Simulated assay, not measured.
Amino acid sequence: MSYAYVCIYSRVDNSLFLIRKKVYGLFFNYEYVGNIEGDVLKFSGQYLLPGGRTDQESAEDILNITKDALRGFEKQTGFQLSAKLLDKKVKSFSHDGTVQQSGVIAYHCLYIHMTPKQISVLTDAVTVNLNKTYEQRRQMGMDDELEAVMIDDIAKAREHLVTFNRAWASPDYGKRESDKSLFAHIVDNLPA
């Protein structure tokens, strides 16, 4: 099992779309987690790129990697991106962050280039979805993971993405995964 991330960027103004995870999530896959506080989320409270799990461990299956990345994006944001309308490219990475055409794949990234206006409209639409009630978001099929979305300069966004800020995480996060270097590899390989 690997992950398929979505990296939405603009070379026009060198901007990048980021998500910020909540500390706790109350429901996933339409089901409440069963406790009042919710579950501590992976990368609790941190800035990330949207995306989700994929069964695609081969770099060659671009169609299914794209579908899985877009499905993960929609579950997190409540916004459906149409693959047909996107200026997109898929890259697959090994565990050390090397772009791979074949072999062992650790994660994939669907890069989507947009205009600054398109990214702004997307950010506003996702913010509207995040401000809906828990029940409305659950009915939309959204997982309860995101605190906010933002647009930032690529260099600043890269810094947000690679830094694990313990002050933002749950006190219960403990020694869970805090290595976010994969996001550096994704940003460093943005298409021209």
Rank of each mutant, 00 (worst) to 15 (best):
L70G: 09
R166C: 00
V104F: 09
V23Y: 04
G78D: 08
L48I: 06
F93M: 00
M142L: 10
Q136E: 15
H160G: 01
R137Q: 14
I186D: 02
G97T: 05
N14Y: 07
Y134D: 12
I154S: 02
V104C: 02
L26E: 13
Y173T: 04
K175G: 14
K117I: 01
A69N: 05
P191I: 11
N14L: 01
S170W: 01
Y30R: 15
I119P: 01
N189V: 08
L48C: 08
R158C: 04
L48F: 03
V23T: 15
P50S: 15
Y134N: 09
I19N: 02
I186R: 03
E177R: 11
S102Y: 07
S102H: 08
D152N: 13
T123M: 12
G45Q: 07
E37Q: 14
V90S: 07
D124V: 02
P191N: 12
I36Q: 09
E31A: 15
F27A: 10
G34L: 08
Y173S: 05
Q56W: 01
E145G: 05
Q56S: 14
K91G: 00
T66C: 05
D39T: 06
T133R: 10
G141A: 13
G38F: 14
M114K: 13
V104L: 11
G45K: 04
E145N: 10
T115D: 05
K88F: 01
Y107R: 00
G52K: 08
S120H: 11
Q139R: 15
D13S: 13
R11H: 12
V187F: 06
F79C: 09
T98L: 11
F28R: 08
M142H: 03
V90E: 09
V99Q: 05
S82R: 13
F28Y: 13
H95N: 10
S94R: 03
L18C: 10
Q80Y: 04
E74C: 09
G34T: 07
I105T: 03
I154D: 02
V40R: 04
L190S: 10
D61P: 00
S15R: 14
D96Q: 10
N64C: 05
I36R: 06
L16E: 02
F27W: 14
G34H: 06
Y173D: 06
A59F: 04
I65W: 06
K42I: 07
I154Q: 10
L161A: 03
K88H: 09
K75H: 09
A69K: 03
R53Y: 11
F79P: 00
I65H: 05
Q136N: 11
